[in-house]
Design a protein around this nucleic acid. Structure first.
Lengths: 223, 223
DNA sequence: TTCGTCATGTAATGGGTTACATGATTAC
DNA sequence: GTAATCATGTAACCCATTACATGACGAA
């Protein structure tokens, strides 16, 4: 019961699949790595974690307080770990490519886990998103044509900018789809097995354009 | 009591300032003219209208059923009209340029009513939005630099695209701010007085670039 | 000693959607 | 006659935020 919106659940399972974590850290990852799109508060995250545990998808393991030999113990951390059922549940979710997968709220998170998604699902999601945007564009165009005369310059400009944004995303999707087609390897990577960065196997078809930004040696791998 | 989120309220008042309307039509305008950003359902709109009437900002006038000479009467329409208090309330809202005015949810609607906003407020809102986006960009850059190594290509690509979108909006704002600066006329237009389209007075400073799209003579002023 | 960050949680509240109920009118 | 669109409304629910409560640790 209480299907906590899917998107948080999905992201949590996905992040925990990479490695066990406690809530606080999880939230930071949610709002940086995946972020940009959505920021969840503790009031949302913690109850969700409890629910996932209740579903048998996570186990919680208290770390810190039980040991009396504690010098470096802050308040007891609760480390969440994905169970086998949790993992297979996440894989089911990953495999779904239904219409909701390419809606605004879901698409971002789905994309963020494309590294663990099979290529055909990736393709369906990308193409679904694209046609979704294209029909939206169509609507915008007709409604604009119909009301152009009675709209003032600012409203028009807003509309124009909005359309341009959508067009831009379509172009982005086109590029992605094309480079997916170019790639041959449809394997989905299990991040738990992928201990060090796999530079050899090209699992997808990303153009890898990575711009400037010097490699910055400041290492804060804060636990 | 029950400040129904501001944004809907604001948009409703703003649209009704242009001309009286009934709920159904109002909603369509909300989701096309202003749309792109947000779509409200009847379950939100109708209760909001009732609340605005209760506040004395609107009057409701039933049209259709009372007349027995009804040939063209659908179900009784309820036409909402802005009261004097409603109008001055809306003008107060228009004049506010606090921090929330340039947050994601609000900015779009605020911009949509820039035609009725004084130039100094327009400037503050645009500049506020720009610096908001710039600080967001800053965060994204640092968090990206910090985690670049452990992120896979798709996550990286998502991040890159996200940043590019924000950068693009900043450039857009730059253009807008510049053309606002170039404009001299800071008058805010009262749409009720502006019966036919004012092509002479340049109330703002928009680059008026309007692209192609043939003038399409299909007139469906459905009312 | 006070501030910032780490760390976990809950209750109240808010803002909105979905699904439903109702019914007239128009276009095919 | 039946589907689509016009037109208004409500109750149940959902998702998430806010504000609060609690408390330890490190650094200034």
């Amino acid at each position: 019961m209480s299907r906590r919106s899917g998107i948080l659940e999905f992201a949590v399972l996905g992040l925990l699949r990479e490695s066990p974590m406690h809530g606080y850290e999880l939230r930071k990852r949610l709002n940086t790595s995946l972020g940009v799109f959505r920021a969840f508060s503790y009031g949302t995250l913690y109850p969700c974690l409890k629910a996932l545990v209740a579903n048998g998808w996570l186990t919680e393991e208290t770390v810190g307080s039980p040991e009396p030999a504690s010098l470096t113990n802050r308040r007891a951390k609760i480390v969440y770990r994905l169970t086998a059922e949790g993992k297979s549940h996440f894989e089911e979710l990953l495999a779904h490519s239904g219409p909701d997968a390419w809606e605004d709220e879901h698409f971002g998170v789905r994309f963020a886990f494309f590294g663990q998604t099979s290529r055909d699902v990736r393709m369906r999601v990308l193409e679904g998103r694209r046609s979704r945007l294209e029909e939206r564009l169509e609507k915008m165009r007709t409604s604009l044509a119909r009301s152009r005369e009675r709209l003032d310059d600012y409203t028009l400009e807003l509309q124009r900018h909005g359309m341009e944004s959508v067009e831009r995303e379509v172009r982005w999707l086109n590029e992605l789809i094309e480079s997916e087609r170019a790639g041959r390897d449809q394997r989905a990577v299990d991040p738990a097995e992928q201990h060090q960065k796999d530079t050899s196997g090209d699992a997808g078809g990303l153009p890898r354009r990575r711009g400037g930004s010097r490699p910055d040696p400041s290492d804060d791998t804060t636990t």
